[in-house]
Write a protein that binds this DNA or RNA. Structure first.
Length: 476
DNA sequence: CTATGGCACGGATT
DNA sequence: AATCCGTGCCATAG
């Protein structure tokens, strides 16, 4: 398929290895940046239009044949690999069934324009300038990075004016934007809630006076401080968790962990997409690995031809460029190769998970995959990190998820709870799971339940609980 | 007294 | 070596 080894150059150098590693960690979007950068500063590197498919010659391809011919050619292979140019569609992000408006991610570059559009009619031209400035200096969680006084000076407006704008921005959608921190964000969101929503009286008081206690779940302390029954406090906190989001710009979904940043949990365009051909049993899976960039990267033949002519320093510089370019191309090919070999193992091992959902995820470790692949386990670790994959049902999940041992158990718990008549205690759930052959301690059931934002049995009602999604616990 | 959540420890994974 | 995860123990709410 691909010309994997250029016979001309020496096989593998340490620099080669080091660079392959550093490329492997990148998602295809990050790699794209990297390639563009490299193209820019290395004249020996060239990006050419993709060749045409040898069979149908009409459609361009990224590697080998065009997608249609690849499919035809490999009709009997259970797993077909395609390498297409770029993900064609930003899929709807749908980690869980109910896509709650609040949790839809807003693409960062759209956010500013979107908010400005909402506010356009309400703001005077001078205020719009301030608003634009404010939106430009938000951090990744949507919090204000500059104190209002500084903004006032920089935009040459009064403090009062800036504060008025800030209030407007905080009331826009997504609410709580441009506040000073999680606490203020929650308060702003409370103000922004539409009238029909009943707000527990305690909610505001708790956020204002007992924010820290609330974050740490110290219900007792809060109840004592405000002389309120603990049940009411619980209820208020439940309300807060369900309706408010401490990080206005960060879209939560799934089992959010990673309290402080880390790698983001939200993916707009996946690195890999897995699709089914038909819905039969024994169907083919199409695995598409998205290429970071359209076209083929290669060494500019013209550059190569002219290179050896000059005798002195300039020729050294040229050969340096040439070497660097060929290294880069090789590394990219190797990255793709590793990704493809790894995905083949992953997909064939986790076929049921991919087609039938969380419950069928089999336990795997990175070390096992590394052994099958014949690479070091840290290589697999890198390849898995910061990649995402789109499943046939449209969910985009982190590749990490393939190694999540507790996912099937969590799914079982969810199912058990969904089909219960009257609320089951954690202990009981633990027993049911044991009968199904899954051994987990009662304490663990509680932890999983909490992870999935499911209330304890006492606070659950029998029958059909409505859609129940909530923001993550606020951690600080 | 029972159910639950916090804390912390040990073993596995990265 | 650093981190993550499941679990046991204990305090506390109901």
């Amino acid at each position: 398929m691909l010309p994997l080894q250029e016979p001309s150059m020496r096989p593998i150098t340490t620099a080669h290895l080091a660079q392959t590693m550093s490329l492997l960690v990148l998602s295809h979007e990050e790699l794209r940046e990297k390639i563009l950068e490299e193209l820019d500063l290395n004249p020996a590197l060239e990006l050419v239009e993709e060749p045409r498919c040898p069979s149908c010659s009409r459609r361009v391809m990224a590697a080998g044949r065009c997608p249609a011919c690849t499919l035809k050619h490999q009709a009997d292979d259970p797993i077909v690999f395609l390498s297409t140019r770029e993900s064609r569609h930003p899929r709807t992000l749908r980690e869980d069934e109910a896509a709650d408006r609040r949790f839809e991610p807003v693409a960062p570059e759209d956010l500013t324009a979107d908010v400005l559009r909402q506010l356009a009619t309400d703001l005077k031209p001078s205020e719009r300038r301030v608003a634009a400035y404010v939106l430009a200096c938000l951090d990744e969680d949507g919090f204000l990075t500059e104190p209002p006084a500084v903004i006032a000076r920089l935009t040459r407006s009064s403090l009062a004016e800036v504060e008025a704008v800030l209030r407007r921005v905080a009331g826009a959608d997504p609410p709580g934007l441009a506040t000073a921190g999680p606490q203020k964000a929650l308060l702003a969101q409370l103000d922004a809630l539409k009238p029909p929503t009943p707000i527990p009286l305690l909610a505001r008081i708790i956020i204002e006076d007992s924010f820290k206690d609330m974050c740490e779940g110290r219900i007792g302390a809060i109840a004592r401080q405000h002389e309120a029954p603990a049940a009411e406090v619980r209820e208020a906190i439940r309300f807060i968790r369900q309706n408010l989001n401490p990080y206005p710009k960060r879209a939560f979904y799934g089992s959010g962990r990673q309290p402080s940043g880390g790698d983001s949990n939200v993916y707009y365009s996946p690195d890999v997409a897995i699709n089914r051909v038909r819905a039969d049993a024994g169907e083919q899976l199409i695995v598409e690995i998205f290429a970071p960039i359209a076209g083929w990267l290669r060494i500019d033949p013209a550059f190569q031809r002219v290179a050896p002519k000059g005798g002195d320093e300039s020729s050294e510089e040229w050969s340096d460029h040439l070497e660097r370019a060929s290294l880069f191309v090789k590394c990219i090919q190797q990255r793709g190769n590793t990704m493809r070999r790894m995905m083949r193992i992953l997909v064939s091992a986790q076929r049921d998970f991919i087609l039938q959902g969380n419950r069928y995820l089999l336990p795997m470790t990175r070390a096992e995959i590394a052994a099958k692949l014949g690479v070091h386990e840290s290589t697999v670790s890198r390849a898995v990190k910061s990649k995402s994959v789109a499943l046939p049902d449209g969910r985009i999940i982190p590749l990490r998820r393939f190694f999540d041992r507790s996912l099937p158990v969590r799914q079982c718990i969810k199912d058990i709870i969904a089909s219960e008549d009257k609320p089951l205690t954690d202990e009981k759930i633990s027993q049911i799971l044991k009968e199904e052959g899954i051994c987990v301690a009662r304490r663990t059931v509680a932890k999983y339940r909490d992870m999935m934002q499911i209330l304890p049995s006492r606070l659950r009602n029998g029958g059909k609980p409505g859609s129940r999604k909530s923001s993550n616990q606020s951690q600080v």
